[in-house]
Computed example of a mutant assay.
Amino acid sequence: MDTFIQQLINGLMLGSIYGLIALGYTMVYGILRIINFAHGDILMTGALTTLSGMQLLTQHFPHLNALVVLTIATLLAMGVCALLAMGIERFAYRRLRNAPRLAPLISGIGLSVLLQTCAMIIWSRNPLMFPQVLSMDPIAITAGDAQHPPAIITVTGIVTFLLALSAMAGLWLLVGFTRLGRGMRAVAENPRVASLMGVNPNRIITLTFAIGGVFAALAGVMMASNYGNAGFSMGFLPGIKAFTAAVLGGIGNIRGAMVGGVLLGIIESLGAGYLGELTHGVFGSNYQDVFAFIILILVLVFRPAGLLGERVAQRA
């Protein structure tokens, strides 16, 4: 039971990050029907920009509290990633909206390589240490015993989960109860009709990319804070897994992205934890990536629309 609780905690924390990243995929797909494969590298840019911001603030304002420094640097990174995402939409995707579906896909992959190369030039190829501002001291949740250590959680893990949950709830309220959200839903339904009703599709699409960039930056800071490092390649695999989470929940469905992210994180953690125990450590956390792609294959084969997605009939 201690192992189960520990892996469940790990899965919730990991899944909340996946869900936050998946929101960027699902919002863009819901409106444009394209997959922005550069989204994971926006996450990477957010984490490294936050790190640079913290270093500059610490250098020029050494008496600032570390938590204040992290907060200011994260807000700065959110702004940078929002502008980056808006630029990606304007220069890489806008002219390809009516192109064959393969064209935006290739454009996104090319952007991913370009962003990683730029990050290597700016921040070097080596992973950089990310300051541990919040406490990483373990907090025991279960009693445990001599043979089975107790289930633990950290302050950083708690803050990560609560921040992700708050961001997801905020987006749900934004889409469901604001003028911008109504515009997003209208453009997703039919851009031409929405424009006739006074909605500017280009503005809505640009803001959608910006919101996705903000969430990616926040997810990047969460990842870097939990793992203690950041590097040019840190966004690739989480980006692919977040895409898997979006497909699992029903890509284009905001609630589906949240549910898919949490489910994927729990499945990965439980699978890696119990596989490690059954094989006495031969297979374990190093093989947890396999579970994400097994889930992706199964979902695409048996339920392509995802758990919360709806099957849409194709017009003749």
Rank of each mutant, 00 (worst) to 15 (best):
N202H: 13
I205V: 13
G181E: 02
M197T: 00
R182M: 14
M197P: 06
L171F: 00
N190E: 14
F177V: 05
W172V: 12
E189L: 04
L207T: 07
A186T: 05
R185I: 12
T206K: 09
F177D: 13
T178L: 12
L174M: 02
V199N: 04
V175A: 00
V175H: 01
A186C: 08
G183I: 05
S195I: 09
R203T: 03
N202I: 08
E189G: 14
L174E: 00
R182V: 12
R203M: 09
M197N: 10
L180S: 14
I204K: 15
G181V: 14
V187N: 05
L180Y: 07
G176I: 11
R192Y: 15
V193A: 11
R203G: 02
V193Q: 11
L207P: 01
T178A: 13
G181D: 08
R182I: 12
M184K: 10
R185M: 14
N200A: 10
W172N: 09
P191R: 10
G176M: 11
R182N: 14
I204H: 05
L173C: 05
V193I: 10
S195H: 13
A188H: 08
G176N: 13
P201R: 05
G181C: 10
L173S: 01
P191T: 11
N202Y: 07
L196R: 10
S195V: 12
N200Y: 06
G181H: 02
L171R: 00
N202F: 15
E189F: 08
G183N: 04
A188Q: 09
L171M: 01
L207E: 01
L207D: 00
G198V: 07
R203V: 04
W172E: 13
P201F: 02
I204P: 05
N200Q: 08
L171P: 02
A188W: 05
G181Y: 01
V199G: 02
M197R: 15
G198M: 05
